[in-house]
């Protein structure tokens, strides 16, 4: 079943407490190459049948209005994955 994958990240200027906690823990395990981490969300919208332009437009709207909170988050990627 084809899927539309939506990636949502906190806006760059918004504090990301989770990323901050993870970046603090990485060096303790010897992972020292990552000065910054930001954590996001990935959604997979399953589509019954072909992903038409109209369906994609719906996904975009859903991503902007419901899957993300435009006050603090950006939709950074929407892509169609066919399996």
């Amino acid at each position: 079943m084809p899927r539309i994958v939506v990636d949502v990240m906190l806006k760059p200027e918004i504090l990301d407490p989770q990323g901050k906690a993870i970046v603090g823990a990485l060096p303790r395990l010897g992972f020292t190459a990552f000065p910054s981490v930001r954590q996001g969300k990935r959604f997979e919208l399953f589509v019954d049948g072909e992903v038409t332009e109209e369906i994609l437009a719906q996904a975009r709207e859903a991503a902007e209005t419901m899957l993300s909170n435009p006050v603090i988050e950006d939709v950074v990627n929407i892509e169609v994955v066919a399996d």
């Binding site: 906190l10 806006k11 760059p12 200027e13 918004i14 504090l15 407490p17 906690a21 006050v71 603090i72």
Partner: peptide, 14 residues
């Protein structure tokens, strides 16, 4: 300047 967030995000762990 990058856009300034209108919302303050809390970090309860911090």
């Amino acid at each position: 300047p990058s856009k300034r967030p209108a919302v303050q995000v809390g970090d309860p762990f911090a």
